[in-house]
Design a protein around this nucleic acid. Sequence first.
DNA 1: TACCGT
DNA 2: AACGGT
Length: 201
Amino acid sequence: METREKILEVAMEHFTRLGVRYVTMDDIARAAGMSKKTIYQEFKDKEQLVFNTFENSMRQDQEFFTKLSEESNGALEHFVEISKYIRSRFSNINPLVFSEIQRYYPKCWQLFEHYKHNCAIKTITETIDQGKAEGYFRKEIDSNIMAMIRLEQISSTFDPAKFPPAKFNIIEVQMAIMDHFIHGLLTDKGRELFYKINNQD
DNA sequence: TACCGT
DNA sequence: AACGGT
């Protein structure tokens, strides 16, 4: 594997599991089996490593979502698949990582914000529109407003002031909100399919 | 790996 | 004292 990719992979695993500030450059060098010098040849400083690590991971997520929407059999299945992905993806993430990045790595946080406003809202809006056309989602709802609400819901689960990790399991909160959100969109026909999808596995 | 500055 | 950076 390429040196740079190896570093990004090790860094992502460490940052998400233990927290960005807790993990030192020495830790990453040791885990990647290389010297710090090698890391600093690829990345200017820790801030850049953090930025590139999350940038890389978001790119991978984006690729996954694109593939998912190409393969999906409709908007509702798509939402359910995304829900599964989120569950697996976030089960290993220390929920404190996001507030940590917001506070100490503002450039990296801006990357998240940029993604939210330029990609995520568009993708969710399109999926809701598709579900309407398929007759699974209510036509009277405003797709764009619901997409924005959905993003705010997801963001809120990572805010320790709203859902303290000591009291709440983030994955459970995510799943509860997702279920509630989808029910708000569904037509009778959609609800029928939704129950069918949920009971098949 | 040892070391320095913060 | 610990950690980023050389």
